[in-house]
Amino acid sequence: MSGFEAHLAADVTTLCHCWRVTLRDGTVMGFTDHDRKLEFAGTSFEPESGLTASEARASLGLTSDVVDVSGALSAAQITEADIAAGRYDGASVETYLVNWQAVSERQLLRKAMIGRITRKDGQFTAELEGLQAELDQTAGRTLRRLCSAELGDARCRFVLGASHKGSGSLTQMKGDTAIVTGLGGHGDGWFTGGILTWTSGAAAGRCERVELHRRNGDQSELKLWRETAAPVAAGARFTVTAGCDKHFSTCRDKFSNARNFQGFPHLPGNDAAYGYATEAEEHDGRPLVL
């Protein structure tokens, strides 16, 4: 019997949980529900986070089990801005059962990924999804009419020129809408669906999807798909790329890039699939969808 097994079999144990979180950018953080800092495997596990775990369960089969981990946003390493910015989304989490009197006596309980995170009243709750959750991710391409590429990426192959980019500065944030200057040379909707990247200020480096672009006199309004996580003050600089609604007609008419369209625009819909020939219709083999 190993030392850890003997400890578990004893009448009195000194056990705690430790979580090692590895973010997608490679940053590694450690947390524990013990009241002192613990160190092992090259990681320091901090107690200040006040993390607590819900009941865990393991099921046979391919169903992904979910465990909730809750904690306070007062920890120096966990901030509301980072959570809202999606920094923890998709991070991997290792959960250990540890004898805090002898950290060499420990057992890896599970590996999981952070799924949905909710925030309320200075607290956060993160769902830890089992590795089976990766099986729910789309692999390969799917047959759909809309393009699956991002404008300007390797699959799209469109070269973004000066007319397809813009830059300016923020005048004011109204909720999820940025009032900006510098885009006066572009008409309404040109940047709808594009990507805005902050280049200065507290949100520098953060990217936002533009839901709607409209002109308003000398200024422009950019409605972002959600309120920016980091505070953005007036004067912050940004760049923004032209938007694409993923339709074949837009790819053809706005960007002249129809040959690289990464969708299936001529795929018949349900009406065509269940339709039937009539004398009044012309069936000459032409595409059903233009």
Results as ranks from 00 to 15, higher is better:
222 L>D: 05
228 T>Q: 14
201 G>N: 07
218 D>V: 12
248 F>W: 15
209 R>L: 12
219 Q>R: 12
225 W>K: 13
235 G>R: 07
193 G>A: 03
252 R>W: 09
221 E>S: 09
227 E>R: 15
212 L>Q: 13
236 A>M: 09
244 C>F: 13
194 G>H: 02
244 C>A: 06
187 G>M: 03
204 A>Q: 09
195 I>A: 01
200 S>H: 03
208 E>Y: 12
238 F>Q: 04
203 A>W: 01
186 H>E: 04
203 A>H: 01
235 G>V: 07
234 A>T: 13
248 F>Y: 15
211 E>P: 01
220 S>W: 04
198 W>A: 05
222 L>M: 08
233 A>F: 07
223 K>L: 12
192 T>V: 06
217 G>W: 04
224 L>Y: 09
230 A>I: 01
206 R>I: 00
213 H>S: 06
240 V>R: 05
228 T>H: 14
187 G>D: 11
251 C>T: 07
211 E>H: 09
190 W>P: 01
232 V>K: 05
207 C>S: 12
223 K>M: 13
229 A>N: 11
240 V>A: 06
207 C>Y: 03
187 G>E: 09
245 D>S: 11
224 L>H: 06
209 R>S: 11
200 S>E: 02
194 G>Q: 00
209 R>P: 00
226 R>N: 12
238 F>S: 06
191 F>A: 02
242 A>D: 08
221 E>R: 12
205 G>C: 00
205 G>D: 05
188 D>M: 02
199 T>Y: 06
225 W>N: 15
242 A>C: 13
252 R>G: 04
